[in-house]
Design a protein around this nucleic acid. Sequence first.
RNA 1: GGCGCCGUAGCUCAAUUGGUUAGAGUACUGGACUGUCGAUCCAGUGGUUGCGGGUUCGAGUCCCGUCGGCGUCGCCA
Length: 588
Amino acid sequence: MLRTHTCGELSEQQCGQSVTLCGWVDSYRDHGGGLFVDLRDRYGVTQVVFNPPDTPVDAIEASKGLRSEFVIKAVGNVAERPEGMANPKLATGAIEVRVTEFQILNKSLVPPVVPNGQELPGEDLRLKHRYLDLRRPAMQRIMMLRARMIKTMRDHCTQQGFVDIETPVLGRSTPEGARDYLVPSRVNQGTFYALPQSPQLYKQILMVAGFDRYMQVARCFRDEDLRADRQPEFTQLDLEMSFVDSDDVIGVIDGLVARLAKEELGLDVPTPLPRMTYDEAMERFGHDAPDLRFGLEIIECTDLAAKSDFGVFKNVAKSGGRVRAINVKNGLSQYSRRGIDALTEFVKEFGAKGLAWFRAEEDGKLGGSIAKFFSEELLAEFGGRMAAEPGDLILFSADQFAATCRVLHALRTKIAREMKLTKPGEMHFSWVEEFPMFDFDEDEQRWQAMHHPFTAPLERDLAHLEDDPGKCRAQAYDLVINGSEAGGGTIRIHDAEIQQKVFSLLGIDEATAKERFGFLLDALQYGAPPHGGIALGIDRWVMLFGELENIRDCIAFPKTQKATDLMTEAPGTVDAKQLKELGVKIDA
RNA sequence: GGCGCCGUAGCUCAAUUGGUUAGAGUACUGGACUGUCGAUCCAGUGGUUGCGGGUUCGAGUCCCGUCGGCGUCGCCA
């Protein structure tokens, strides 16, 4: 090693010792007679001093050439700082290293991204010079958090008997679901591998193979448009277990949640984690991944709305729609008339035609522009139903059920953010289970699997496969952290007859099924044990544990919204020779 | 694919209603300084206002197109 210590570990204990530190020049202060350098590595910052009499004159002269981000090796004596010169802002601030000799290991250009900078440069610059951005203590903290979290996940699973098995990255395209990233085959021209959207089929086959408990930290790929919490390439903790039901899989993850929350955040999370059904989540929160850190629960008002003279409410109630509302406690302090107008514009983005609202007046009565369509008694009933108190703002959505969910969920989330209803560092973990097996695709006029076509229905809903697929619920469960879907899994079908029914409902005929995943169906016929599993989005977990606003900040080398890498400039063009070998022609 | 925000010095930002030679902080360069820690003081360098076109006596500012970054809807079984 070129160094004897890191820049984070020296204290009064080493006073008098000669040490050697290596690191980057975080900052320097030139005083003419001497020079101070804050030397940085990933462990911390230590002040190294180039001053007489410890430092020879020629070394002091040479030190004047030091600049930001130069890499140096400094040999010197650890000394307590002079009286009153300790720096409490620095972990090593009680001491300094008085340099006796030093060496510039490497110079640096003027860095466009300054690791200790007060102002964060634009994200495009940070991504282009990611090696500089990753030197920032905030990024180093997150990368180390990520590494610890993944290690804990592996440890937790290993301790419970899971076997870590790698599955192929070069696989076969299965056209349902997200778009695949494709890799042309050179040896078999005209054919393509697909990068996995998840190791789903392989892990089920590993259950058939008898591995009983499988785990993998798996890289997954989806060629879809990006979001703040979505990357085209992401990492999952992928699990599969044999001879289990939903509770067993959930139990493994409950333990992991409690352990990670304790170790990384110091939080005591009681287990089992709370659970609610999908139907309850949609009724109470309008979303299948509700943020339970705050209230703003949805309240059913269709019966009251039907009694009013307000055309919108009456018509919706008559036509089988729903009138639902949220009570924004003390909302009038946040939303003036203009604020409510802004909310109205906002809900239009989600397909609402308008936003009906009441305000709770000083005397507790409900008022507002639509109040005239309601009798005194009816207003009082609304007030009672909503538990309205002076200052409250009541917002309605009147539409078909799904539309009210969309609008009220959007409002809930936006208002919680604007009214700061969540506390920093607050974490809420819960499960949503019993998802519908299918949803109906209006465009294509057919049923689609809500999860994937191997998801097992609830025992008690088996009959619905025949009479009413829309009512059939799945043995599916999603882990929700602070309103984010942090993982999801299902118990799989291991019965050929049920599998056949599901396929035919989805309009997948025998030939298609055989072509797309015949290998899995084959395997399932050779003694497949009952099995199920789950996949957790590791990037999202790190993002939530690290309180980050976007997923890129917890990935060392992320892609931009257009799925490019600004540092390597991937994707890039390739030689005509390479294309020829692959038998690929560019049609553009 | 739709909608929205943004792009000015190495970096972070400013520039009144379209009006003089596009400014500030920081960084950088040179100088001063024996204890600083966002060092301080003095001086200086640094600009095709993303790119292309248009309107105008005059464009960083307005219009059209385009490129790039971000957010969001669609999409993500």
